[in-house]
Design a protein around this nucleic acid. Sequence first.
DNA 1: TATCATAATATCAATTCCTGATATCAATTT
DNA 2: AAATTGATATCAGGAATTGATATTATGATA
Lengths: 106, 106
Amino acid sequence: MIREFFLGFIKIHILHYASKKAVCGVWLIKELKRHGYAVGPSTVYPTLHRLEKVGYLKSKKVVVGGKRKIFYEITARGLKALGKSKGKIEELVNEVLKNKGASQHE
Amino acid sequence: MIREFFLGFIKIHILHYASKKAVCGVWLIKELKRHGYAVGPSTVYPTLHRLEKVGYLKSKKVVVGGKRKIFYEITARGLKALGKSKGKIEELVNEVLKNKGASQHE
DNA sequence: TATCATAATATCAATTCCTGATATCAATTT
DNA sequence: AAATTGATATCAGGAATTGATATTATGATA
């Protein structure tokens, strides 16, 4: 169940990375693992496909080191979604971590 | 798709609220709406049931103002999950908002 | 005490997502 | 041209999501 809490985090991370540079599946798997998220190929690739399908990412195929990879970069649409997400993260932090969310717990 | 990003946020919020005081379904719907999350009964109630089922929340039935309500409070197990979530939120903030996550974007 | 109105909660059903296991693919090596 | 290897793709069973709808319990009313 707690994994469900973080599925969105993972997607936001992916969008964030893809806003910094072009990323591919295997790199994401390693990077996300470094950040404490256990993510396998069968989670990452379908997610990348979906993120591209909705227009948040765009891909290009490249051969590097003798292996074909598919690199993903963020789109304008994806940047917009990422921006919206950042706003929500701030809201979450203010409410849950700092407890500054004008809470009227009446 | 972007809604998927926030489904975890919503669950964390619920756990957070339930750690402050006993909460019921309708109150959560209003409160989450106040925080920008569109959440209806068919989202909140099954979620509450599941959170109770996994032992993060415990419920008690109360009659208030002539209406029966079910109030939920966090459990020790839920507190643990919430704590873990807070750690992840900080990590997310550092990486995505502050960009302090020792990122080796090689 | 039967019925009604109301608010809170519960369920349905179609769609979609998640993911361990497995398969496929393409570039290089032998 | 077969094998190797690393990267990506798919499958299939289970589970989650949610608009729509139904159910429930309480107090009021007659």
